[in-house]
Computed example of a mutant assay.
Amino acid sequence: MANEIIAERSLLARLETQPRVRDFLAQAVATGRVSHAYLFLGAPGSGKLDAAWALAQQLICEDGGCGSCDACVRVARQTHPDVHYFAPESAVGYLIDQVRALLAEVSLSPIRSRRKVYIIDRAEQLRANTANALLKTLEEPPANVVFILLGPSADMILPTIVSRCQCVPFRTVPQTRSAELVERATGVSPERARMAVAVAGSPARAAEFLKSAERQEVRRAMLRQVDYLARADEADILTSIKDLMAVIKAPLDEVKSTQQAVLDRDSEYLTRGALKQLEDRFKRELSHRERSGIMEALACARSLLRDALLRLQGVDEPIVNEDVSEMVDRLCATATVAGVTAALDVVAQTERRLARNVTPQLALEVMLLDIRKALTCP
């Protein structure tokens, strides 16, 4: 049985919301029938990225994903030098130079493992020119390389890419089910489990969020910002954004320290080219984590605004931010349904801007000023 070959401490074991995907990937690794390229398809929050890192751990670990060895720990922390994460670096999607750099790196030998894994997020943003550069390698990659592409649906991805990958569908997971899993895994209250899922998305990331004091401080800081908007002027908002960015970047300090330790340790036996590749990868990782932190902060703002909208509309549904219900009450006392709806649209627009690589601090400044306008306009 597939369940019998999944180590309890592995990332794959945590994919409880996608049991079919979990068992399918475990069986593929255990039987040596791993595809050279996978395409994970599903809606946001369905756990595609969690599954990508879980499969990478299974492939990198000498014991097929034990969850406790040095390799497994490094993959779980997203610091293993042979697991590479890529996301679009321009407003129009993947850059051709970005894909060329990826392909140049593919031809190099692994640094610490027998395999290399490439996670390519938002594969729907691979357009014709960038896809063409990748197609041949996707079809016939080196024997030690596995690609994992992520996208919302096959219809949104170039058919030439879809045809070269093994498609793995992910089902949509209700937030109530995700919250139940977080509650069971962490022992927190139902209210905190709902909050963590609303902020982090998937159950696995929600559980990690609850373990991180720094990420929870980001939530508190963002909620305070939204709560303060009605009483703040533009100068106050622009000043406070700097403090908010500092809080968002705080969790990166540990990542930077881990990266530097890896560079210090490996610099003696890596070639100059390999060391440069590793440094570039670490820079991309930091950029990705910073943007992930900002997106999580936006999810916090969205959850507070959504709670206010539920209250204003008299919807009989528990709010997410029970622990700061007084903030929800203050928003409801001064805002209208139209104003809160407009503010939610601002958050969604900011997410799209960040996906197009708008400067994070600028995006947050514009967002908070626009939310303030939406909430205070009669």
Rank of each mutant, 00 (worst) to 15 (best):
E285R: 14
V262M: 10
A274K: 09
Q260G: 00
E234D: 13
Y269F: 08
Y269N: 05
A250W: 00
D266R: 05
L238F: 10
K283A: 15
Q259R: 03
A274D: 11
R281N: 08
S257R: 13
A246R: 09
E285V: 10
S267K: 15
G273H: 06
P251K: 07
I241C: 04
R284S: 13
S287A: 13
A261N: 03
L275T: 04
K256A: 06
L278E: 05
L275N: 05
T271S: 15
E268F: 05
Q260N: 06
D243E: 14
T271R: 07
L275W: 03
S240C: 11
D233P: 11
Q277N: 13
F282Q: 14
R265V: 02
E254R: 11
I237F: 08
V262S: 06
M245Y: 02
D236N: 14
L278C: 07
I248W: 00
D253Y: 03
A232F: 07
V262G: 00
A232D: 05
L263C: 06
T271Y: 01
R231I: 06
D264Q: 06
K276C: 01
M245N: 04
R231Y: 12
S257I: 05
K276D: 08
I237M: 05
K276E: 12
F282E: 10
F282H: 10
V262Q: 08
D243M: 07
K256G: 03
R281L: 11
T239R: 12
A232H: 07
I248C: 04
Q259C: 01
D264T: 02
A246L: 08
L275F: 10
K242D: 13
Q260L: 02
